[in-house]
């Protein structure tokens, strides 16, 4: 939070709930949608919702879409790497698809939802003044955050464990580059 707060001005609307990767996407989405709907002054017809696509911890692959459905957003994009606003207010969206390619779409305008991938823009620069301004509102907002238990939503975990995969690695130290190349070429060709 402190890292982001120094880079861009925002209003924080926090909810104190589980950020576990095991939390049910349906319950999480319901809470997020309810929270967005509760933000005073939000014009739903002009709403753009951004969220992470396949984040490292959660990666449910469903939360953003469920939030969009609950908010009635029919223009949804996932794996977005680029968003370009056109002169007429429409925007061009690049979404990741198979084989390292992007699907290109043009959306007429808001409302829309974006599951963001990596993009190609650098991080915004630190601005201490922005950080100071944000701190005036961020800390009170955090103190007022409501605590919400996430229901399991009928999801049952029968087991969860890290994989026990351990290979017997053959370490080859005494071969020349040519011999290594020959061995790899033979292996590739099998």
């Amino acid at each position: 939070m402190m890292t982001i707060a120094q880079r861009v001005s925002f209003e924080l609307v926090p909810v104190d709930a589980s950020a576990s990767g095991f939390a049910d996407a349906h319950s999480t989405a319901a809470l997020l949608a309810e929270t967005i709907q509760g933000i005073a002054g939000v014009d739903r017809s002009r709403l753009l919702v951004f969220g992470g696509w396949e984040s490292a911890s959660r990666g449910a692959g469903a939360t953003m879409q469920l939030v969009g459905e609950r908010l009635g957003i029919l223009d949804q994009f996932q794996g977005v790497d680029q968003l370009s606003v056109q002169g007429d207010g429409s925007f061009e969206v690049l979404e990741r698809i198979e084989a390292g390619r992007h699907q290109v779409s043009v959306c007429a305008g808001p409302p829309a939802l974006f599951g963001w991938a990596t993009g190609n823009l650098p991080e915004a620069r630190n601005n201490p003044q922005v950080g100071m301004a944000n701190m005036r509102t961020v800390m009170p907002a955090l103190q007022k955050a409501k605590s919400v238990p996430l229901p399991s939503g009928g999801l049952h975990f029968l087991s969860a464990s890290p994989p026990k995969q351990q290979r017997q690695t053959r370490v080859v130290k005494d071969l020349s580059a040519e011999q290594v190349a020959q061995e790899i070429a033979g292996w590739i060709g099998k």
Binding site: E92, L94, R101, Q103, V104, A108
Partner: peptide, 10 residues
Amino acid sequence: RTVVTGVRAP
């Protein structure tokens, strides 16, 4: 409201 216009390789 959204039209798919094509596919772009990286």
